[in-house]
Every structure is written in structure tokens, then in C-alpha cells.
């Protein structure tokens, strides 16, 4: 490419555009949950090794973000919310995103394997495979349950953090997985209710489009109710304690109440107050997840002082 053509376009990518490819906001959630998974595990990890491990888990998450943007560029172009992403806006070529994603996937998995253990490295590779191939390429465009399956990819990071410390999987790490896995559908469907993105034009079978918005409201309630037992089981597990249990009781009561309010409304009522309940539920869902994991951290630090825990 000559300099002239670049000047003509006037939009050559800066460093920030490549950072945008890694979906930094999703990455911050990955960092937080992986960190909690690593810290609450019963095996101590050297702080520098822990830091490195979390960094490469985050980089692996970023790599899958870049691969997702590479494959989904055609959808992103159609939808308003995503049209300004680096590839649809023309700042980064699709091939560049593919290359960056593949290279960072390789680096992050190998480095996590070297820094921690090969089980954790392989787990990260599986997570990237699951998010990119199983979710993005295969199921996102074929089933209205796409959000449920995509949620599994987002739920793996605390398990990887746990694997960094212990080298394996256990009941506690599966419960942390279940918490995020069951939380994701209500979280995203609430967003889909008030964002009204043009998924139908983009050819993505969102539940709001395929089964209607009333069915989506019922789905939100069902998943929120099914989520509560997993949150309570986590609180009663070996990494839980009184703090986690109290947090889980309060948060789940509020979450189910919010879902009930959504399920009882119809579109006319929601339109009248500009989706106030749906927006409030979505915001609370972020608080819900954050406080659950924060409570696990608090409980773990209390345990070091001989307090907390069961």
C-alpha cells in the first residue's frame, strides 16, 4: 500500500484501534473473575506468576474478541451499535484482525502454559475455541439460544484462574462457572429488550425476534430463578462463608424481584416509561455479578485472619 492511498482514506489505524479489537470492556470482566478464581483457590500462587497468568488469560480473551470481530464484521456493519467498530468502519482490515487474533491466541495459551501449568493453558485454548468456533461461527447465527451458549465462554475465566492455582477442576470452580453461565442470559436478554438492535436485518436469531418479546420476558424470569440455587450453593461451598451467603441472599432476592417486574409487564407498559424496569434490571445485573465475586474475595481475605468461611 502506498502512502498516497492511506492519505486518501485518511483513516489509517492507530494503536487504539488495535486495542479496540481486543474488546477491552469484556477483558476487564475476564480479568476480575479470573483473578477471583485464582485467589480463592486453596493453593497459594507466587504473586508475580499470578499477575502473569491473569495477564495472559486477559490476552486470550482479547484474542477471541479480535477473532469474533473478524468473523462478525458483516453483522457489525448492519447494526447501529457496532457499526463504528474498527473493521466495519474500515480502519482495520479483516485479515489484520484474523492475524492478530490467531497470533495472540497462540502466544497467550503457550505463555499461560509456561507461567502456570499446561492444564490452564489448554483450558484457555479450549475457551477461545469455544467462543470463536462453537459460539461465533456455529451457533450464534443458527439458534435463538445463542446467548446461553455464548455465556459459557464468558463463564470459563474463573475456572481458568482456579486451574492456574490448582492445576485442575473442582466443585467450587464449577459453581463459579454456573453462576456466570446462568447469569448471562437474563443479563443480555434485558439488554435486547430495550436496545432494539436490528438483529433481524443482520440475520442473528435473537430470542426477542424469533419467539417474541413476551417469551423473552418469561425466559428472563426462568433463568433468574434457576440462577439463585447455584449462587446459594456457591455460598455454602468451601470458598463461601457468612459474607458470601448474606450477599447471595440479598442479591438474588432483588434479582428475582426485578425479573418478576419484567415478566409482568407488556411492551405497552415498557414503552410508556421508556423501558425503565428493563434498564434498571440490566444495570443491577452488572452489580449482581460484581458483588458476588467481590464477596468471595472478602471471604477469602477474612479466612487469612482466621475469620469467615465455614
Amino acid at each position: 500500500m502506498s502512502d498516497l492511498s492511506a492519505i486518501d482514506r485518511g483513516r489509517e489505524a492507530g494503536f487504539g484501534d488495535y486495542v479496540q479489537l481486543l474488546k477491552p470492556r469484556v477483558m476487564s470482566l475476564v480479568v476480575f473473575t479470573a483473578m477471583v478464581g485464582l485467589i480463592v483457590a486453596p493453593v497459594p500462587v507466587h504473586p508475580f506468576v499470578a499477575f502473569t497468568a491473569i495477564l495472559f488469560i486477559a490476552l486470550g480473551g482479547g484474542a477471541s474478541g479480535a477473532l469474533n470481530m473478524w468473523y462478525d464484521a458483516d453483522i457489525d456493519r448492519v447494526m447501529r451499535r457496532t457499526a463504528s467498530r474498527p473493521i466495519p468502519s474500515g480502519r482495520v482490515g479483516a485479515g489484520e484482525a484474523l492475524g492478530l487474533g490467531l497470533a495472540l491466541s497462540g502466544i497467550s495459551c503457550v505463555m499461560l502454559g509456561l507461567a502456570a501449568n499446561w492444564f490452564a493453558g489448554a483450558f484457555l485454548a479450549f475457551t477461545i475455541f469455544f467462543y470463536v468456533v462453537v459460539y461465533t461461527i456455529w451457533l450464534k447465527r443458527t439458534t435463538p439460544q445463542n446467548i446461553v451458549i455464548g455465556g459459557a465462554a464468558g463463564a470459563f475465566p474463573p475456572m481458568i484462574g482456579w486451574a492456574v492455582a490448582t492445576g485442575g477442576v473442582s466443585l467450587e470452580s464449577l459453581l463459579m462457572f454456573a453462576l456466570i453461565f446462568m447469569w448471562t442470559p437474563p443479563h443480555f436478554w434485558a439488554l435486547a429488550l430495550f436496545m432494539k438492535d436490528d438483529y433481524s436485518n443482520a440475520g442473528v436469531p435473537m430470542l426477542t425476534v424469533t419467539h417474541g418479546r413476551a417469551a423473552t420476558r418469561r425466559h428472563i424470569l426462568a433463568y433468574t430463578i434457576l440462577l439463585a440455587p447455584f449462587a446459594l450453593a456457591l455460598a455454602l461451598s468451601s470458598i463461601g462463608g457468612p459474607v458470601v451467603l448474606a450477599t447471595a441472599l440479598v442479591l438474588n432476592t432483588l434479582f428475582v424481584l426485578g425479573a418478576l417486574r419484567i415478566a409482568r409487564r407488556d411492551e405497552a407498559a415498557a414503552g410508556a416509561d421508556r423501558y425503565k424496569a428493563e434498564r434498571a434490571f440490566f444495570r443491577f445485573s452488572l452489580v449482581y455479578l460484581f458483588l458476588h465475586f467481590a464477596a468471595l474475595l472478602v471471604e477469602r481475605s477474612l479466612m487469612t485472619f482466621g475469620l469467615g468461611g465455614w
Partner: peptide, 26 residues
């Protein structure tokens, strides 16, 4: 810098006849 730091930690925590903590746990 990261690789260097990691090398320092890994080498200084290797005691004779003992694997690093993660490998030991496995």
C-alpha cells in the same frame, strides 16, 4: 520484562528435587 521476571521467580523458587508449586499439585 515479563519473561525476565518470570524467569527470576521460577528459577529462584526451584529447590532441588522439588517441582514448582503448580506441578507439585498436579
Amino acid at each position: 520484562a515479563l519473561i525476565f521476571g518470570l524467569s527470576l521467580v521460577k528459577i529462584s523458587h526451584l529447590r532441588e528435587g522439588k517441582l514448582p508449586a503448580a506441578a507439585e499439585a498436579q
